[in-house]
Amino acid sequence: MSYLLNPQVIIDQIINGLTIGGIYALIALGYTLVYGILFMINFAHGEIFMFGSFGGFAALTYFVNSGFSDTHPGLSIVAAFLAAMVVSAILGALLERIAYRPLRNAPRLAPLISAIGASIFLQNVMMLIIKARMQVYPDIIQEEFLEFGWFSISYFQLFIISGSVLLMVGLYLFIQKTKTGKAMRAVAEDRDAASLMGIDVNRIILITFVIGSALAAAAGVMVGIYYTQIDHMMGFIPGIKAFTAAVLGGIGNVPGAMLGGYFLGLAEAFGVLFMPAEYKDVIAFGLLVLVLIFRPSGILGEVVSERA
């Protein structure tokens, strides 16, 4: 189509796709990290993302009311990210401790049902807190644009794209280089063997939940700043899309979740060029169905086989 001959459209859609893709990827990592270790889908992960967004919202609102954000806008944003990550990390840890750990050796359906229950519970808790009304992120920093002649990029987009990449590189280094990260990989591969190394498996699982939740919280604050509107149902669709991204990349595979997130973001941005915008969600879920049918192990997922 003529759109693909227009470099301006292509560059703009790449920027759009990378922005939302980075957000999907950050959330997808939480699904994949937990699945990698426990072989369960934490369906309450979208709500952890939502709580993170509200954690950041509460912090920013506080800074606006106290006037702190007028003098230190940058610091306020950083503090809001930290607050959000702490809120979500605590929530993720509680969720693991209360909803999943008691069911660790139960049939696989049990933790799944527990997760769905936790998800509905958390939605309702937030609904009571905000009285089911949409909240609007305070405008602390005005959105400006970097102009490059025939295309431009917003500072917000630049911030989200680079911020998500930074967090993902950080996570990758953590998993590859630190002792705890290596232990996470060891536990993911063989829980019993890991415990024979003196690794406290429960502690590693808890850390995994904490890390995944903190990443989702960062995505939550980014969504708040970028789209401004947040509510108690905001975790649902991004949660399912991020899950799709994780499956696309190969669930349980960390680079796969990152790749899947960007792939999905770009697919949505470019898909809109070829079909009416109202079918945007169809792209994500259509991809999910196709991957599940033709390559259930995902793009980077290895074909499941017994260890040699």
């Binding site: 591969e189 019993d192 063997a193 890991a194 260890r307």
Partner: peptide, 10 residues
């Protein structure tokens, strides 16, 4: 352990 149980992806 029996069957070695090394971490094959590490």
């Amino acid at each position: 352990p029996e069957g070695r149980k090394i971490f094959s992806r590490l």
